[in-house]
Amino acid sequence: MKGLRIIVTVKQVPDTADVKIDPKTNSLMREGIPSILNPEDKNAVEAALCLKQQHGGTIIAITMGPPQAEEVLGEVLAMGADQGVLLTDRAFAGSDTLITAFTLSRAIMKLGKYDLILCGRQAIDGDTAQVGPQLAGFLELPQVTYAEHISIEKGNAVVRRGLEDSTEWVRVKLPTLVTVTAAVNAPRYPMLYNVEAACDGSRIIIWGAQELKVPETMLGLNASPTGVKKIFEPERKKKGQIITGDPKDMTGILIDKLQELNML
């Protein structure tokens, strides 16, 4: 194999876990909040960089969003990716996860052959974890989610999946799509050395609906089947109880409490 061609999907998100919700529009209020590269997408980029270090190849980062989403591509290029693709068009606005995945799939088809698509598990603004799997669906690729470790062996990806109560090892033939969690690695910092080259415009392609040759009826808000009925901030859970005393007393209190709650 002559090096890997890896595509990484990335998203620009607000820099906070504490985003306020506009009750009138049912949307996230992003004004005045700085934007960052979604943390688990950063893990996906790092995973791609590590695989490139081992096997050689090319890394293409792709994002969809308003024109300023180009900023996260700059960051990914400064981390060491080779090329960025920005999908931006008014026609894309309001896309739900399905139409986002569809639009990304059309752009990826246009990019040509690839060995591996890496995605962050989920974005910190929506937390849906849907785009990766849906993208695999549109591209008719096998998918492996929740990756905590990835290696490439003889044309296969060997992935360790971190599940809630178990660990699963999966061997899958390339090309495939893998979504990664934060446990997969510790992402490197982008380098100031790379800033000049990342920003000279030569390494970022910008595509709209026209370039993707997709009719506008299949894009954006109107094509999206998801309607947001209501969005709300979850109520804060009740405060926990702290048990004090010597270990023997504390154990007794704990057992009583658990029995009271029918948990024992």
Binding site: I36, E71, G74, Y189, P190, L192, V195, C199
Partner: peptide, 16 residues
């Protein structure tokens, strides 16, 4: 700010 300046600031901010 230019693209370079924004990216530089973001890199420094994240590192710091």
């Amino acid at each position: 700010l230019t693209k370079q300046q924004k990216l530089t600031r973001n890199i420094a901010r994240d590192f710091a």
